[in-house]
């Protein structure tokens, strides 16, 4: 049997652990992630709880677990929505070509000019902060990313002989896209899903850090960091824990994406 790429194993383990933590947090955390305990505020890691407590005595490890659900949930929802729309747009553009393709690429250009933080500012003005704003802002930016990747990949498939054969057999563009193009580019789509979910986590953290993400008391890694700013010198563990969680999550998903790419396309793997 072929040896699995190291990045795939590492990425899979990290991501798996994170998803498990997020799921478990739905019905169990060591302490209540929103329960205050003023007497035990700003305790160092190990003194109270595994990672100490925050400024109102909440257990940091429990908030991290519950925050994993928020971060992963928002990032994954945004990537799934943006990825689905982007993929549909990309494969349609590749299949139809002509003015439609040019139009799609132009709209892509407009969307790409709006980094998530920017569209979140615009959307925040429109509908206030919250999970929906975050998902929309992140998802919007994913559309051009996925459209670009899938269009490029789909165009390559369209030049293959078996597509000619399918055409000769009288199949239409939609059917060929469904039966031949999408299955053949699914590996690239899955790789992008992993990598973009990682970027989504990074962006969600940034939005929550600015106060444009989910509203309190819903736990979120980004807001933990923004609250920890005030206690930077007195309780540095409050800055270290959520930052490590974010970095680990993004690292895991990136490694997973790289590993999947190595697995499905060995040529593009370690060489370049």
């Amino acid at each position: 049997m072929k040896r699995l790429p190291l990045s795939l194993v590492l990425g899979g383990l990290i991501t798996g652990a994170l998803v498990a933590a997020a799921l478990i947090s739905r019905f169990w955390t060591p302490h209540d992630p929103v329960g205050m305990d003023i007497l035990n505020r700003l305790k160092a890691p190990g003194d109270v709880g595994l990672l100490g407590t925050d400024q109102i005595g909440r257990d940091v490890f429990s908030i991290l677990m519950a925050g994993a659900w928020t971060s992963l949930g928002i990032a994954f929802a945004a990537t799934l929505i943006g990825g689905t729309i982007g993929t549909l747009v990309g494969v349609t553009a590749a299949a139809r070509g002509g003015w439609l393709e040019r139009l799609v690429m132009s709209v892509n250009g407009v969307l790409f000019a709006f980094p998530p933080i920017l569209s979140a500012i615009l959307l925040g003005a429109l509908m206030g902060p919250g999970a929906v704003t975050s998902i929309t802002a992140i998802g919007l930016f994913m559309i051009p990313v996925f459209a670009r990747v899938t269009r490029g990949a789909a165009l390559q498939i369209w030049s293959r002989d078996y597509i000619q054969a399918a055409r000769m057999a009288g199949k239409g563009q939609a059917l060929i896209t469904l039966e031949h193009v999408i299955p053949n580019i699914s590996a690239q789509i899955i790789v992008q899903l992993a990598i973009q979910t990682g970027l989504g986590i990074l962006t969600e953290a940034g939005l929550s850090f600015l106060g444009m993400g989910v509203s309190p008391p819903t736990p979120s890694w980004g807001r933990m960091l923004s609250e920890a700013q005030t206690f930077l010198s007195s309780a540095p563990h409050l800055v270290l824990a959520p930052g490590c969680a974010i970095a680990l999550a993004v690292l895991g998903l990136n490694l997973l994406g790289d590993g999947l790419r190595d697995l499905t396309d060995p040529k593009r793997g370690s060489g370049a």
Binding site: L202, A205, G206, G243, I246, A247, A249, L251, N254
Partner: peptide, 8 residues
């Protein structure tokens, strides 16, 4: 570098 948030 890619995984670590710049504000952190």
């Amino acid at each position: 570098g890619i995984a670590v948030p710049n504000f952190w």
